[in-house]
């Protein structure tokens, strides 16, 4: 169904129409939330809070990209989760990345065991690299390079100018490149940084 029509119905209070939008974007929203928070539970909480707040604030939606709008709400919920974690520090992020519960999802594939382990290590390395970035650069890199969003969508989702998106992206990528070139042994052989081409 047409997204605009669903949004209009949802704005009139139709929960079922809104749930169709949720189903369309929950995969993207959850992955963005997970990459920002590095924590499964917090990502789930942020995604659920974000969709609920989105439903309540639908009257304020003035058209444009619903995807960017809902991601903006979910990103703010992620920031809330991160601040909550800073106030009440629990398990360090690295421990979260390496615990069994975290890796369970990665093993939930049809890959051979060696491939699954490699994927898990690769995922942990990527997440460690992302965690080194400041929040604004991390969100921009996740939206652009992991989720494949355009500059315009990222600018709308993060409420900044296009130039800011460009600069955040370039700085974030530079830091990632520096980190990954230092930790090449953690990367799959076909993805190691060679430098000279």
């Amino acid at each position: 169904m047409n997204e605009e029509a669903l949004v209009e119905r949802a704005q009139r209070g139709d929960v079922q129409a809104y749930n169709e939008l949720v189903l369309a974007y929950q995969q993207l929203a959850y992955n963005v939330a997970y990459r920002i928070t590095s924590n499964e539970d917090q990502a789930m909480d942020a995604t659920q809070d974000g969709f609920l707040k989105g439903y309540r604030a639908l009257s304020q939606f003035r058209g444009g990209s619903f995807k960017a709008w809902i991601l903006r709400i979910i990103t703010n919920c992620c920031y809330d989760q991160l601040r909550r974690r800073q106030r009440r520090p629990q398990t360090p992020i690295d421990d979260l990345l390496e615990n069994d519960e975290h890796s369970r999802l990665l093993e939930d594939t049809d890959d051979r065991p060696e491939t699954a382990v490699e994927r898990q290590e690769f995922d942990i390395t990527i997440q460690r690299a992302l965690n080194l970035l400041p929040e604004d650069q991390r969100v921009t890199v996740i939206m652009s390079d992991i989720e494949g969003m355009s500059y315009e969508e990222i600018a709308a989702a993060t409420d900044v100018a296009l130039g800011t998106v460009k600069s955040r992206l370039s700085r974030g990528r530079a830091k990632l490149r520096a980190f990954l070139s230092e930790h090449q042994e953690l990367l799959p052989s076909y993805l190691r940084l060679s430098g000279e081409v």
Binding site: V22, Q27, F122, D123, I126, I146, L176, L191
Partner: peptide, 21 residues
């Protein structure tokens, strides 16, 4: 190469549905 790595970062399946009651 970095961009390729990020694009290949595994997508996580949604642990549960986030639809509203």
């Amino acid at each position: 190469t970095v961009l390729t790595m990020l694009k290949r970062a595994p997508m996580r399946s949604v642990p549960r549905s986030f639809t509203l009651p």
